[in-house]
């Protein structure tokens, strides 16, 4: 696992049933592009997060494929429908096989 990887998400605590809400996600990650050379002149091998998925109560919201052109500390903003109270599940997949996850619950106001 790459060191110091920490996911952050911003989700409202409550919503009206059927409301569209804005979600922001940020994960601390170097996103080493595989294009850079190290001090020894050799290419630093690529090491990125290559996929990000957001789900709500098991149903998909967005599925993102990331390439090395995504900036350090990948940031996404998107909109989700909230049909009922439940739990968001956010998953990031690292090149090295690590999987980072975080969950957030939301209530219906």
């Amino acid at each position: 696992m790459a060191s110091g990887v920490k996911p952050r998400v911003k989700v409202p605590k409550t919503a009206a049933a059927g409301e569209a809400i804005t979600i922001k996600t940020l994960i601390s990650h170097k996103m080493e592009s595989g294009q850079r050379k190290g001090d020894d002149g050799n290419i630093i091998p690529r090491s990125i997060i290559n996929r990000f998925v957001a789900e709500f109560n098991g149903q998909n919201i967005i599925d993102v494929t990331l390439e090395p052109a995504i900036s350090t500390n990948p940031y996404f903003q998107f909109e989700a429908l909230v049909p009922e109270a439940g739990e968001f599940h956010f998953i990031w997949y690292d090149d090295d096989g690590s999987v980072y996850e975080t969950k957030k619950s939301i209530n219906i106001a």
Binding site: N60, I62, V64, T65, S71, F76, Q77, A80, L81, P83
Partner: peptide, 16 residues
């Protein structure tokens, strides 16, 4: 990047 929007996506939009 490629964004695929699922059934609970409220809009076919994204920022990065």
């Amino acid at each position: 990047a490629t964004f695929r929007f699922g059934p609970l996506s409220a809009s076919s939009s994204a920022s990065t």
